Simulated scan of single mutants.
Amino acid sequence: MFELNDLRQTRFFQDVFEEGKKEGKQEGKLEAIPQLLAFGLSIKQIAQGLGLDEQVIRQAAQPKS
């Protein structure tokens, strides 16, 4: 019988799991941007610190409607 442990060993599961971790890390970075701006950091400083493009920082800094 195919068990959860068997599924975890498949390439598909490993690829999906890694993609999910990357997305989670990206979301965490994006959520931190408003706070970092509030601390007085520049867009350039935030981009360098988080390893993101400055345009991504600008988009994340826009108020959500």
Rank of each mutant, 00 (worst) to 15 (best):
E31S: 12
V56T: 15
A47E: 08
G40D: 11
G20I: 02
K64S: 09
Q26H: 09
Q45S: 14
Q62V: 09
Q14K: 15
I43P: 00
I43F: 06
E19S: 11
N5S: 12
V56M: 11
E23L: 15
E3A: 00
E18C: 01
L37F: 06
P63D: 08
Q9D: 14
T10G: 09
E3L: 06
A61R: 04
L30H: 07
F39G: 02
D15F: 06
S65A: 09
L41G: 02
Q14A: 10
G20S: 04
G20P: 03
Q35T: 11
E23F: 11
L41V: 01
A32E: 10
G24H: 11
K21E: 06
Q45K: 12
Q62P: 05
A32G: 03
G28K: 12
K21V: 01
E19W: 01
Q26I: 14
L4A: 06
E31L: 14
A47D: 07
M1C: 11
G24K: 06
Q62M: 10
Q55M: 09
F17E: 06
D6W: 00
I33T: 06
D15S: 08
F39N: 15
K44L: 03
I57H: 04
L30Y: 03
L36A: 07
A38D: 12
N5T: 10
K64R: 13
E23W: 03
Q45Y: 00
N5A: 15
R8I: 15
E23S: 07
S65L: 09
E18M: 05
D6V: 12
L7F: 14
E31M: 14
Q48G: 09
M1N: 09
Q45P: 05
F2W: 07
K44F: 01
Q62L: 05
E27F: 01
D6N: 10
K44R: 13
R58F: 00
L30N: 08
E18W: 00
A60N: 06
R11M: 00
R58L: 10
Q62A: 09
S65N: 01
Q14G: 08
D53C: 12
A32Q: 11
K64D: 05
Q9L: 15
E27Q: 13
M1G: 15
A47S: 14
R11Q: 12
A61K: 05
F13G: 07
Q9W: 03
I43G: 07
L37N: 00
Q48Y: 03
L52D: 04
Q45M: 11
Q9V: 03
E23D: 15
K64C: 02
A32F: 07
D53Y: 07
L7D: 11
E23T: 14
Q62S: 14
F13A: 13
T10P: 08
L36Q: 01
E54L: 01
P63V: 02
F2N: 05
